[in-house]
Design a protein around this nucleic acid. Structure first.
Length: 447
RNA sequence: GGAGAGGUGGCAGAGUGGUCGAAUGCGGCGGUCUUGAAAACCGUUGUACCGCAAGGUACCGGGGGUUCGAAUCCCUCCCUCUCCGCCA
């Protein structure tokens, strides 16, 4: 099918040029390109069907030629061996066969070039949106599907977390800028502890009540892993990378290392569903968002997140998306933070996702709902890129898994939401009931 | 950082230039036997691509090279293990 240029395991080979691992089902891509193009248009993506077909035709023709030559070479080589064993003269046959090798490498060169172009094209095609995804160009077209609680009412003018944090003397952006740069924060004392308490609470909730397995992973990954989840090759500029060779990348989300735990592996049916919860820092270069959310902790280069990751049987993935979203919602409910759930429209949907629910928490400081969790079903898109499979007992064959993930929750933004919703008129922050045990019984953080 | 040993099918583990996609064992699947099960025995058991099919091609950590022919030889990178050094 749509070939690749080989999976580079480190070295200087770009790791994301992976053989036979287009992200969409290659059969589908070849047999129904027009239908796919139509679906992809919902995502604002234009599929160049003609170019795709032309490249694939070239690929196929070259591959057929190559295989014929290889078969010829194999037959001759085998005969040389047999004649030699029989003590016959082989000089003439070797002479005759030696020409084939040259032609083979010639065609191999052409085939590689075509495959490189084809891969570049295929690897840039996003996942196909599910039929329930609303059309639209931007977040303005996202569809609200439910709300929980009401925006917090105050009998004074609420301030944002930056004012609260600096008023408490426990949140310092200037010092962070001094030691690193913009979009970082230094937290101290009770706010730093509250931040940690949120992490502990979320991990405990998901492990004890929702059945997730706590997991610790590397915060630096290789390019193959980023290809697997879909951040590469298209979104290289969003990543921080190290200077060495091979380069490592700081993870933009735990989704990358955790989902890739199952790259190139086959799990048994009994292991499914696989549910991991993982707390990690996340690093994002935020390229192209220079003017956006510059104030405060909403958009940082480094933030903490508790991530939920599931690998499930294909038949179960849509049910799993609803459940996973519910698990993330439970965090907000227990923290008693008002939120709403929206379905992302096609134009706002991520590259790898078939469908995404965003959880948006109410922020009094901004007087609006802001994203605090993103829950997605990737169907087989990521699994195909990373070859994460399960053995289907009915067919006896390895088949692609479906992967899902969701923030449960973004910790930095949860802290922001908590401070802003739980503030009092004196600039203090009340500690929500569920966090008090984690705060040594502390009920309020005061200046 | 230094020295050495390795990376082979789901797993373990042979194979050092030619009928090797790869012995053997375990595991899996099917069968015989059994009231049932176990044991034993027999058979079967990788993935992808091209093809209506027959069949063909590729894959023995990645990449490159030598050769008529490479799992096997050479170069290079990555990874694992052991010992020494250093170190949170």
């Amino acid at each position: 099918m749509f070939g690749g240029s080989g999976l580079g395991r480190g070295g200087r080979t770009p790791g994301f040029l992976v053989r036979n691992q287009g992200m969409l089902d290659p059969q589908l891509l070849r047999s129904q390109p027009e239908a796919l193009a139509q679906r992809l248009a919902i995502k604002g993506f234009t599929l160049d069907v003609q170019r795709l077909q032309s490249l694939d035709d070239q690929r196929k023709s070259l591959q057929t030629q190559l295989q014929e030559l290889q078969a010829q070479r194999n037959r001759s080589a085998k005969e040389v061996g047999q004649r030699k064993a029989a003590g016959k003269d082989v000089a003439a046959l070797i002479e005759q066969t030696s020409g084939i090798a040259g032609r083979i490498s010639e065609i191999e060169g052409e085939l590689d070039a075509v495959r490189r172009d084809l891969d570049a094209l295929i690897h840039g095609i996003p996942n196909v949106p599910h039929e329930t995804v609303p059309s639209g160009d931007s977040d303005a077209d996202n569809e609200e599907i439910r709300r929980w609680s009401e925006p917090t009412a105050f009998d004074f003018e609420p301030v944002d977390h930056v004012s609260l944090g600096s008023g408490l003397g426990m949140m310092d952006f200037e010092t962070a800028a001094k030691i690193t740069g913009s979009r970082f924060v230094v937290m101290s004392r009770e706010i730093a502890k509250l931040h940690r308490a949120l992490i502990q609470f979320m991990l405990d909730l998901h492990t004890t009540e929702h059945g997730y397995q706590e997991t610790y992973v590397p915060y630096l990954v290789n390019s193959n892993s980023l290809f697997g989840t879909g951040q590469l090759p298209k979104f290289a500029e969003d990543q921080f990378m190290t200077a060495g060779d091979p380069a490592y990348y700081l993870i933009p989300t735990a989704e990358v290392p955790v989902t890739n735990l199952y790259a190139q592996s086959i799990v048994s049916e009994e292991e499914l569903p696989i549910c991991h919860v993982c707390h990690t820092p996340c690093f994002r270069s935020e390229a192209g968002s220079y003017g956006k959310d510059t104030r405060g902790m909403i958009r940082q280069h480094q933030f903490e997140k508790v991530e939920l990751v599931q690998l499930v049987r294909p038949d179960d993935s849509w049910q799993a998306l609803e459940e996973l979203t519910g698990h993330a919602e439970t965090v907000l409910k227990r923290l008693e933070l008002p939120y709403r759930v929206v379905t992302l429209c096609g134009g706002d949907l991520g590259f790898s996702s078939a469908k995404t629910y965003d959880l948006e928490v109410w922020l009094p400081g901004q007087n609006q709902y802001r994203e605090i969790s993103s829950c997605s079903n990737f169907e087989s898109f990521q699994a195909r890129r990373m070859q994460a499979r399960w053995r289907n007992s009915e067919s006896g064959k390895p088949e692609l898994l479906h992967t899902l993930n969701g923030s449960g929750l973004a910790v930095g933004r949860a802290l922001v939401a908590l401070m802003e919703n739980y503030q009092d008129e004196n600039g203090a922050v009340v500690v929500p009931d569920v966090l008090r045990d984690y705060m040594g019984g502390l009920g309020k953080i005061s200046p």
